[in-house]
Design a protein around this nucleic acid. Structure first.
Lengths: 249, 249
DNA sequence: GCCTCTTCTCGTACGGTGTTCGATTGGCTC
DNA sequence: GAGCCAATCGAACACCGTACGAGAAGAGGC
């Protein structure tokens, strides 16, 4: 029940910064949590470890933050501060949208633990709001209005999220295995050839384009760029088919 | 280290279905796990609860499945069996791609806990492989070849994942709050108007299109459809700009 | 100086988690 | 019967999130 109606964002932070400079602060806690999460993933953050990482007792954190979920919510919003959305007018809107999508993808890849939280609750913190504000400005400048503005924004962020999800999965797996890419390819190969008869189209395509030799991160980056261009083309087409009544100058 | 090189999929299931009909089976365990996950989300699945849901001891599951991660991997792959990818030739490729993307989105919304796992490791189970096989067939029929075939596939699945992520977030939050949409809107309103000055573009857009009165699931479904059309338009444009040397008949 | 109030820290404890390990069962083949 | 092996399970370990209440440390009033 604590959602929407009783959110972190609608409550004031507990420390009202009185004089005696408390040894813990919400900002400090969130920063430390992000450090742990970046270093070891979602499993690396426990309240006890966070406490000792901060040099304080395990349960001291609970005075500044209601619970772990809320801490995660704060941490996720904090990462939204990193994604830059250009002002409209600085550049053509395609460039602006591209910069935003690339930035969002990069941020998610820098903090892969964020990805696993995006399906749990919508992020409504100040940084996410500021992100939304900039998106509206950018897409309004591009000529979008009404509900389609929201749709275009969703489409661009969805692409960043979906791409980052796929890429995060393979980089995390590669990191866990600790092997270089060609070693992994060598290990997977027999599994794939064994099943080749079951997946004839895939196998033919795989052999024709010998996929496993390409660096996966490069391949997924190219996939992201390709998809982004398609999306921007599609949006451009929509704009040309639905000219605004009050077009931007 | 257990990734890629030592995966569930490369090991045979432990029960070789000998005669004495063991009271537990891997398939049964996976089915029960999915039931728990669907009913109560990722937090609803614990090995003890799974055991008692199956009417067996808490740790008996460990004979059939190496650990919880592997069980999740099996469960995720199982859900991939639900998404239908049409054969090429049955319909125009746009329809086929649309059916696949819609199906994938629906599957993810039926099993929202899957979304949180997609960024952890790539799914390489038999059902995911079959999915890939069908995608290659479908997109080959559409005229894609080489690496761009992979990119087009990634783009379509990314859209399904990204859209489902956003939608899952709001439906989960609404379910947690237990309030009807208009109640939620009433509760959020003061927060939004308080911050209106900070987010002028967003606030103007929000008021012009009074967003909060629309049913969020309907809005997000429309956003998905809008985005899918843009993507298909973009892919069509790419196809027309890059005619295949050996075009499909 | 003392008293009280507020802010903040922290040790302890409770119920739950994933997983290991060794004991135990039960049906099969010799 | 003896031996074997697939399969189940209970107990135990280390860890988790967090409720609670005791305490420290300073501020303000007198």
């Amino acid at each position: 029940m604590p959602d929407f109606t009783d959110s972190v964002w609608m409550r004031p932070a507990r420390t009202r910064s009185d004089q005696p400079t408390p040894s813990l602060s919400r900002a400090q806690i969130v920063r430390a949590a992000i450090e742990l999460l970046d270093a070891e993933g979602a499993a690396g953050l426990s309240m006890r470890r966070l406490g000792s990482h901060l040099g304080s007792g395990a349960t001291s954190v609970y005075w500044h933050v209601a619970n772990k979920d809320e801490l995660l919510e704060l941490a996720v919003d904090e990462t939204f501060a990193e994604v830059y959305v250009p002002e409209p007018g600085d550049t053509p809107w395609r460039i602006g949208a591209s910069v935003m999508a690339n930035g969002m993808r990069q941020t998610l890849l820098r903090h892969p633990w964020v990805i696993g939280t995006l399906g749990i609750r919508p992020t409504m913190g100040p940084n996410a709001m500021r992100f939304g504000e900039r998106m509206v400005a950018l897409l309004t400048g591009a000529g979008f209005t009404g509900i389609e503005l929201s749709h275009a924004s969703s489409l661009l962020t969805s692409h960043a999220i979906g791409s980052a999800t796929a890429q995060s999965a393979v980089t995390a797996s590669m990191r866990r295995s600790g092997l270089p890419i060609d070693e992994i390819a060598k290990k997977i190969e027999p599994y794939l050839t064994e099943k080749a008869a079951d997946y004839p189209h895939y196998d033919k395509w795989r052999r024709d384009n010998n996929v496993l030799v390409v660096e996966p991160n490069q391949l997924l980056t190219e996939a992201f760029d390709f998809g982004l261009e398609c999306i921007l083309d599609g949006l451009d087409l929509w704009l040309s088919r639905n000219p605004t009544k009050n077009p931007a100058p």
